[in-house]
């Protein structure tokens, strides 16, 4: 079941088109930086972008930071919103459920496929970022770099923390995926499900800018998205990273339970 769903997701040309489009923006930014040599001042623009001119190995992080606020969540929302509603709209959900498999198992398989998409996307963005960064900018293979706190990080430390950051960004997207999947069980329209998940994200991002919303800020799904920067402080500031992981876990748990409650008892007519 899971294998079938994975093959379905990655067998579609549109999955790979989405990933390719996602990579276009960081590549464009890298080319522009290379041509103009105009890096944003440190502390402005996406995190780490200011540092890539001197160390191209940081470009995977800058690439993730570029797609993290908007592009990546849109892609995840579209794919996850399509998971169940897409089958319903295509009229294939009925046949899918006619097979002797439980609806819970179908839901789990869909979730695994969406998670795999998130992971592959994040890794591809980071890998393309690394290629672009080392090709276009000076790489510093020996003296790896400076942490946000002004201490030196060895190449191994930098690589390890970059891997952690890639993992963290992937986990941050799980909440979006869970919203998309839940909405996908509510409606037969994949577009409505994806837009629903995006509406949640826009609401969350907007509320985070308001002081009046600060009492609920720690519970907003996008609150800890930028915490991957904390992995590059010295010592690492785990506080927000841990909270971010826990928060995504809570959203995934609650929304999947809700999706299960809705989907296993839903009248499937299409």
């Amino acid at each position: 079941m899971i294998g079938v769903e994975l093959r379905k997701t990655f067998g579609r040309p549109r999955t790979w088109t989405t990933i390719a489009v996602l990579n276009a923006l960081p590549v464009l930014v890298a080319v522009l930086l290379r041509i103009t040599d105009l890096a944003p001042r440190p502390g402005e623009g996406p995190p780490f972008l200011s540092a890539v001119l001197t160390n191209g190995q940081l470009y995977p992080l800058a690439a993730l930071a570029i797609v993290l606020p908007l592009f990546l969540p849109i892609a995840v929302a579209v794919v996850s919103g399509d998971a169940v509603a897409g089958e319903a709209q295509a009229g294939t959900l009925r046949y899918l459920l006619a097979r002797p498999v439980g609806r819970t198992r179908l839901l789990v398989a869909k979730l695994v496929a969406v998670l795999a998409f998130v992971l592959v996307t994040v890794v591809v963005v980071a890998a393309v970022g690394y290629l672009v960064g080392t090709l276009l900018f000076d790489a510093q293979p020996v003296a790896a770099g400076t942490s946000v706190s002004g201490t030196s990080l060895t190449a191994e430390q930098l690589a390890g923390r970059t891997l952690l950051a890639i993992g963290y960004v992937a986990v941050s997207m799980l909440g979006v995926a869970a919203f998309g999947l839940f909405f996908s069980t509510l409606t037969d329209s994949p577009l409505a499900a994806a837009l629903g998940a995006l509406a949640v994200l826009v609401t969350s991002s907007l509320l985070l800018t308001l002081d009046a919303a600060s009492p609920i800020a720690p519970y907003l799904p996008t609150r800890y998205w930028l915490a991957f920067v904390d992995l590059f402080r010295d010592p690492v500031l785990w506080r927000d990273v841990v909270r971010g992981l826990a928060l995504q876990g809570v959203y995934v748990g609650v929304l999947l339970t809700a999706a299960w409650a809705n989907f296993t008892t839903k009248d499937v007519t299409s």
């Binding site: 440190p42 502390g43 996406p46 995190p47 946000v148 706190s149 002004g150 930028l226 920067v229 402080r233």
Partner: peptide, 19 residues
């Protein structure tokens, strides 16, 4: 959110690091 300022104090004075 994307940087930090560290003030390190030792008996001889302070270092202020601005990322």
């Amino acid at each position: 959110a994307a940087g930090e300022t560290g003030v390190h104090t030792d008996p001889g004075g302070t270092w202020t690091w601005e990322f």
